[in-house]
């Protein structure tokens, strides 16, 4: 199970960053995992086209929690364009790799962030 969880994954799992919701979020991405039935909600606060704040809530395994934590840390401060460029692989790489069976959890994190940004763009009529 933890077979192959890197130290970085365990570190983020043990001390997840940016946990919680943003009450007056500018965008929310709610994604679910068809593979094993998990949920990831990403909240963003946007200012001057940048992600001023990013928070998450996750119902899932160790990898899902670690990837959520990691992506909030990566995305914070980025422009929306750059944040949309974060790929599923980038998250896994930043965590020094994930066991193959856990790659779908890192997909969820990138998808959740992108969904939150799209939600923001739709709300503000920018898309």
């Amino acid at each position: 199970m933890t077979d192959g969880y890197s130290e970085k994954v365990m570190e983020h799992f043990a001390n997840p960053r940016n946990v919680g919701e943003i009450k007056d979020a500018d965008g929310i991405g709610k994604v679910g995992n068809p593979t094993c039935g998990d949920l990831m909600w990403i909240y963003i606060k946007v200012k001057d086209n940048r992600l001023e704040d990013v928070k998450f809530k996750t119902f899932g395994c160790g990898a899902a929690i670690a990837t959520s934590s990691m992506i909030t840390e990566m995305a914070k401060g980025m422009t929306l364009e750059d944040a949309l460029k974060i790929t599923r692989n980038d998250v896994a790489e930043a965590l020094e790799g994930l066991p193959p069976i856990k790659m779908h959890c890192s997909n969820l994190a990138a998808d959740g962030l992108h969904a939150a940004i799209k939600d923001y763009l739709e709300r503000t009529g920018k898309k």
Partner: peptide, 14 residues
Amino acid sequence: SFIEGESMILNLDM
């Protein structure tokens, strides 16, 4: 309710 087993196992392991 509301939480997942693997993450409990990892926390217990710690």
